[in-house]
Design a protein around this nucleic acid. Structure first.
Lengths: 88, 88
DNA sequence: AAATATTTGTACGTATGTATG
DNA sequence: GCATACATACGTACAAATATT
């Protein structure tokens, strides 16, 4: 998956969608660590800010938890809140 | 109210708290427009980024709504979601 | 109608602090 | 002590929607 830099969908939302998909599909299973923010940034070619915003969305959705100095982790499904409307 | 630039509390949280207080106290009543992001930035001496993050918190809490090109508005209390824990 | 100003939204880059390994 | 990784914060630029002149 790659970002559409020309599209109207904001990059941080696109990035969030991609990562959300990887979590939903089990490609990155619960408890597993995600790539570091630096890796994500480099892989998708976006800024730290954009990466941060994307991750914050996932954090709000309860899909990931961040552990300072350790990394980003996929939450256990039973720990996730009920999804509200409008998260694609 | 002013920000404590030396304190350990992040500036964006401090700023959010101040604005939250102004809303809660009725100083800025429901339906009323808040100062623009530029004004906020200038008044408190923080960056756009920091202002944005503070406002995003309030947006998540349902205290404000933003209207592109128009401004930031205090939501009607009946439109706000039940407050979750940990919003000081 | 048209140009200008205001205001929010997105995005970049950079620097520094703090926690963990 | 050093490397890795997340967190906060700064400044800047431009796009998009709205309001004003």
């Amino acid at each position: 998956m790659a970002l559409d830099f020309e599209g109207k969908e904001p990059l941080y939302r696109q990035l969030a969608s991609i990562l959300r998909g990887q979590i939903a599909s089990g490609q990155i299973p619960p408890g597993r660590r995600l790539p570091s923010k630096l890796s994500i940034r480099q892989e998708y070619g976006v800024s730290q800010n954009t990466t941060e915003r994307a991750l914050q969305l996932l954090r709000e959705e309860g899909l990931i938890e961040t552990s300072m100095g350790r990394g980003l982790f996929v939450t256990q499904p039973e720990d996730r809140p009920k999804p509200q409307a409008g998260q694609d």
